[in-house]
Design a binder for these strands. Structure first.
Lengths: 417, 417
DNA sequence: AAGTTTTGTTGAAACCTAATACAAATATTT
DNA sequence: AAATATTTGTATTAGGTTTCAACAAAACTT
């Protein structure tokens, strides 16, 4: 289990850099311990509490090693042990080990088009406190938005007794340069070149590491670690909101690309004769499967927002034939783009999130029909298209996972504040 | 360097992933040695001979460890050492270590639409013997093709004194199921469900491991290890031949997807109102940028083959305005699809191979224009679109690298025959 | 010729997990 | 109720791997 956290294929050997002068590739014995601590902590974080014997079985390590490693994690305050109780089977009961979710907290922030959300999440994935508020686009400047975020952060932090944090994760509807935590462009927010990481750090007086990421990339992380795609190593996450975002998992890892811009699924060119897109190009997938397209097809105003969307869903529930037809058409376009992605990635699962989660029942048949027709691998590959199970908090929870990544990779070298 | 051997997420120690190749999860001390042997051998295989001190610097290991590890590799016959000679600088000369390319051979086979190629390649990438022959599609049955391959294999093997092989790599223009080495479908060859790996093994009486892969996936491997994309961690390889193939490297690794079907770049839907594609769908990218499209646009017969293509290139060289215009149009379509892929992967480099390598000078301007216009990350990301440098042997050399992968990952557990 | 610099070699020390033996805690059998 | 079997925790020893430190070897420099 948990290979997703570390990728690495059996016969691996990808090459990366060429010239001989970069960072060391050699491995020392100490690193073995780090790797094993990491494996154990990931087990507990992602799969929940486990007895020591279960950990032995899952990791393949010996009882002695697990005892020593768990002891070290406990000493560091990362896990807690509870005495085991008899369960009816013979043998000495094994104590239960759990992630210490009350003392290893991260801050998660989501900046969506018409929403802000903030949460404090404990190791193991326990959401200790969460706030989501409406925050309509165009009603706030960047500075105001940051101030609003800071206010929410203050609330959740005081609700959790200002317990020190391990890190901060931020998900935002925009293109993010990962090494600088900068939002290069967020069309729906009309942001350009916003150093979001630094702004949030200053506004909230944070001194722990901050990771900013695209909301789709955060969403797929949540979906793959705690949602519908748990256990899947190759996943496409398609999230239709005002814009169409997404995230892709290849061999257990979210793909970031060279600068962190990867995963912009909504701007694949699918219809050169199509509509103009907010990104400046024409005929992007987003123009055919975004919220606007659905509202247009059902005779609503394309910028009708949430109310219009609800009306569409109501009509669909009432089996309005025009609306159902429009949804089927929508599904065909979803299928066309998905088929291309499936031929590109050969995923084991496709997850539809955001608004697409709500329209799922009305579009899935036409989606499947188109996909099956265009898939090259035909029936060979088993692949399913499912609705998100994490739901509206996908990006928020993904942001939390981003903040945990460094701890999980290197459990014993952590700083909190 | 060579973190590629370990990939791993940004924050982790890098080690973990390399050690992680044992499925269990836990890492034992022996794996450290395997990982370090692998790192050293990859250094020598990909970057060529190096002195022991260079290896020390590259791996970060100590002189003692490198000495021991190199000694072990030498004992296994994988590397050879030559006494160092004074180079004008002070200090004791360091012996040079090189991959033993005369005794660690793999067999590479490429089955293209109108070509067969076979080569014997030594560790370090030295091509010891290579044959490429015309083999027009539709003139042979599957069995005949396999027999032709077997004949070529016998030739190259006897030319290399039937030295035992470490493995076999096969690249083919078709969709390959990796775990079974089966060609699910190869439209241009009209193959369906061909157990190619087994057929070749039997026809050539081979007893070493065989790896069959899609030609585009093999091509990108060659290009990234020994061609234009050396050192790049995120690469898109687009190879236009009769069909349009490709391969994608994410974080230093070729992406295979769930069953090995990933990388089918040519069948992205880019024009729903476009032409019917051989795959059964309509408006695939291949219908706009494949060889047929170019011939069509330049007034030739779409199935004119190599002769027609040469005539187009001649006209282009003679600056025939109609042909140049058609090529520019071709470039626009290449750009449209590439822009989508770039938004999806955020690569550091795009490599154009196959026929596209030859038309590169005539299309690159319009490609770039479209791509710049449609890229979301704008000027933020440095990304270049270049022509393949490996050339017509990309898939063949990639197949060889496939065959080396297992040895490189685990240098001391090899069987030859 | 003596000193400096770089590199190979060797043995001890440090780190990590596995293996083994034994103790503890529970269920089952007599 | 006592003995036995089963499972798990603990402690000790052994095996594997790397680093460290000291020394030797081979080159250049003064």
């Amino acid at each position: 289990m948990f290979e997703h956290a570390m990728s690495g294929s059996a016969t691996n050997s990808g090459l990366k850099t060429s010239l001989r002068h970069v960072s060391a590739g050699g491995v020392r014995s100490e690193s073995v311990r780090t790797a094993n601590l990491s494996t154990l902590l990931q087990c507990l974080h992602f799969a929940g509490p486990a007895t020591r014997s279960e950990l032995v079985e899952e990791t393949g390590l010996t009882r002695s090693s697990v005892a020593a490693l768990v002891g070290e994690l406990e000493e560091a305050g990362l896990v807690v042990e509870h005495a085991g109780s008899p369960d009816g089977s013979p043998g000495r009961p094994s104590p239960t080990v759990s992630a210490n979710s009350s003392q290893n907290l991260v801050l998660a922030i989501e900046i969506a088009v018409d929403d802000l959300a903030v949460a404090i999440v404990g190791l193991g994935g326990k959401v200790l406190h969460r706030i989501r508020v409406d925050h309509p686009r165009d009603l706030s400047t960047i500075d105001e938005t940051i101030a609003d975020v800071a206010e929410l952060v203050a609330k959740v932090r005081s609700a959790t007794k200002n317990t020190p944090l391990l890190g901060v994760g931020v998900a935002i509807v925009g293109l993010v340069h990962r090494t600088t935590n900068t939002v290069v462009v967020a069309p729906n927010l009309r942001w350009n070149e916003v150093p979001l990481g630094n702004l949030i750090r200053d506004a909230c007086s944070l001194s722990v590491p901050i990771t900013v990421a695209n909301d789709g990339n955060a969403g797929v992380l949540a979906e793959s670690r705690r949602g519908a795609a748990v256990g899947q190593k190759n996943v496409i996450f398609l999230s239709g909101e005002v814009g169409v975002g997404g995230g892709i998992i290849v061999d257990g890892q979210v793909i970031n690309g060279q600068g962190g811009f990867a995963g912009e699924i909504g701007h694949m060119p699918v219809n050169p004769e199509g509509l103009d897109c907010g990104c400046g190009a024409r005929g992007c997938w987003e123009t055919e499967i975004g919220e606007g397209a659905l509202l247009r097809r059902t005779g609503r105003m394309a910028d009708g927002g949430r109310a219009a969307l609800n009306s569409v869903l109501d009509s669909a529930a009432a089996e309005d034939p025009n609306v159902l037809r429009a949804l089927a058409r929508q599904g065909e376009w979803i299928g066309i783009g998905l088929a291309g992605l499936i031929n590109l990635f050969d995923p084991g699962m496709v997850v539809l999130g955001g608004t697409l989660r709500r329209v799922y029942p009305y579009v899935i048949d036409s989606v499947n029909e188109v996909v099956v027709g265009r898939r090259l691998s035909g029936r060979e590959a088993r692949m399913s298209i499912v609705a998100s199970t994490v739901g509206e908090d996908a990006s928020l929870l993904g942001a939390a996972e981003l903040a945990f990544q460094s701890l999980l990779a290197n459990p014993l070298t952590v700083h909190r504040a």
